[in-house]
């Protein structure tokens, strides 16, 4: 957790210094913009974490570990691709759920696959945003090009874990 604090503080300091070279907009305006974006999170994040913590206590860990654990290998990676693709909702739903699944024994490669599939395939987002704005042909073309990214990310993680 300390590294996370240091990273955030370092990035923030760099950006504050960078802004110092262009006096517009003022730091106060930026902070106000930040406050506007923070407001909806003040209620969401605590409730999401509490819900996640209770779900973690209820989830049958043996089942999760068997189908998506480190030992589930390529099969687990393919299953994680499917689960990630159909997982609905934004990051406020996905990341607390991911935390629950990690503590229930989902493997590292399978988790990377799941997050990647949720990011690039995201069928709910395809239906709600992508087809209406880009049209179905470009959407299909993008999905075809991105279909292999989640398993690839999982396999790369596996290779990395084997070397480490």
């Amino acid at each position: 957790m300390t590294i996370a604090y240091v990273t955030i503080a370092g990035l923030l300091l760099t950006l504050v210094l960078l802004r110092q070279r262009h006096p517009v907009p003022g730091h106060l305006d930026v902070a106000l913009q930040g406050w506007r974006q923070l407001q909806p999170l003040i209620t969401r994040i605590p409730l999401a974490l509490i819900a996640g913590s209770f779900l973690a206590a209820l989830i049958p860990e043996a089942v999760v570990a068997a189908v998506l654990g480190d030992a589930s290998g390529l099969q687990g990676i393919l299953l994680a691709t499917a689960v990630g693709a159909i997982m609905p909702g934004g990051p406020m739903i996905t990341f607390p759920l991911a935390l629950v699944l990690l503590s229930a024994g989902v493997g590292l490669a399978q988790m990377v696959t799941l997050i990647t599939a949720w990011s690039v395939l995201a069928l709910h987002r395809v239906l709600v945003f992508e087809i209406p704005t880009l049209g179905w042909r470009p959407t299909v073309l993008r999905l075809l090009a991105c279909l292999m990214l989640p398993p690839l990310a999982g396999l790369l993680t596996m290779a990395l874990a084997l070397r480490a």
Binding site: I8, V30, A31, Q33, Q37, L38
Partner: peptide, 17 residues
């Protein structure tokens, strides 16, 4: 909590810059 507050500020600075 501190990470979320810092991250939101980082987002606001990136948008401004």
């Amino acid at each position: 909590a501190p990470i979320v507050v810092g991250a939101v500020l980082i987002g606001a600075y990136v948008q401004a810059l």
